[in-house]
């Protein structure tokens, strides 16, 4: 396996049962086109995960979207982060992918 930055922290997370990772800057991923979601992540000092979510399907799927975002954040070992997300009807895997990219960019 190629030992780049991504694979090192993924491996560390898996094997150690979670080495905690801190993001250091603001980053975003995704778009405001239909079926997509724009995710912006920011560092915070509260040791909390804060999520501010807007969605065109908030009433029907707000809880699911929230769950998908938070699961990805946890999977990536992040405990201190502020996330602002504007959803335009993205499927779960798209939400997950955009959160992952935003966090990776914030770590780079």
């Amino acid at each position: 396996m190629k030992l780049d930055k991504d694979s090192i922290w993924t491996a560390l997370n898996k094997e150690s049962g979670g080495i905690k990772v801190k993001i250091s800057k603001v980053a975003k991923a995704g778009t405001l086109e239909s079926n997509d979601i724009l995710v912006m992540v920011m560092p915070n000092d509260n040791d909390t995960v804060e999520l501010e979510l807007e969605s065109i399907v908030m009433q029907q799927f707000g809880d699911v979207i929230r769950k998908v975002v938070l699961e990805k954040v946890k999977e990536m070992g992040i405990e201190s982060i502020t996330i602002k997300a504007q959803d335009k009807g993205a499927l779960d895997y798209t939400i997950s992918a955009r959160v992952e990219t935003a966090i990776k960019r914030a770590l780079a």
Binding site: G30, L91, D92, Y93, T94, A97, R98, T101, K104
Partner: peptide, 15 residues
């Protein structure tokens, strides 16, 4: 490029 790579990976896994 980074964003598309992750999205395509997830699409193959999920669609």
């Amino acid at each position: 490029k980074d964003s598309a790579r992750v999205l395509v990976r997830e699409a193959i896994k999920n669609v």
